[in-house]
């Protein structure tokens, strides 16, 4: 009974570690075989994400292809100390979608800004820490109740506002807010290693 989920998590963690290695191979030497595997894994997922946000099938296909072209051309910038492969590709898909809708770049901070306040020095094993943290996040996500997961997915993945979620679920707005907050606090604790 206890053996199976752990094995599943370990398999998932192994897949994530492999995707990181593959994406690095694309970045370091434009490895087409590695990219083919990255494409096969992520193109359907990116397309599903775009569909969830309301893109038509044709738009989703166009933007997803554009996202994968960006992954191919910018893989050199992928830094496993900052994010996993799926998180990095999620941010590209998110930005591309906004670019496509608004025909302009998504506003974001620029680390080259002369007034940018830098992060504290990263730890020497930051890449390992990031991988460990994201594995813990996946495990914590599995531990949430189905309701909590669905709420989080609506808010942070499908981009629904709290009032839209309240209307769709017929829950009071305050309840939506407090449940989301509670769920995110749990996940943060997992990310920060407090559980």
């Amino acid at each position: 009974m206890t053996g199976k989920p752990i094995t599943a998590d370990e398999d998932a963690a192994a897949v994530r570690a492999r995707l990181t290695v593959l994406l690095r191979a694309v970045g370091e030497r434009r490895d087409r075989v590695a990219f083919t595997e990255i494409f096969t894994h992520f193109a359907p997922r990116v397309r599903g994400y775009l569909g969830r946000l309301g893109a038509t099938p044709i738009e989703a296909e166009e933007i997803a292809q554009d996202v994968m072209v960006t992954v191919w051309r910018r893989a050199e910038l992928f830094d496993p100390a900052q994010a996993s492969a799926s998180t990095w590709i999620f941010t590209i898909a998110r930005n591309r979608r906004i670019d496509a809708i608004r025909r302009q770049r998504r506003p974001d901070f620029d680390p080259n800004d002369p007034i940018f306040v830098p992060d504290p020095e990263p730890a020497p094993d930051a890449a390992l820490q990031t991988a460990t943290r994201e594995n813990r996040l996946h495990a914590a996500l599995k531990d949430l109740s189905d309701d909590q997961r669905a709420l989080l997915q609506q808010a942070f993945f499908a981009g629904k506002s709290h009032s839209e979620i309240a209307a769709a679920t017929k829950l009071p707005l305050g309840t939506v807010k407090s449940r989301l907050r509670l769920a995110f606090v749990r996940l943060r604790k997992a990310l920060e290693g407090d559980v």
């Binding site: 494409f39 193109a43 997922r45 590709i89 993945f157 943060r188």
Partner: peptide
């Protein structure tokens, strides 16, 4: 960054969208 990691985790799970790869 933590919220983006959550987005990455949901992306990871969202596999049922067949694409003619």
């Amino acid at each position: 960054r933590q919220a983006e990691a959550l987005g990455g985790a949901f992306l990871e799970e969202d596999a049922a969208n067949p694409v003619d790869v």
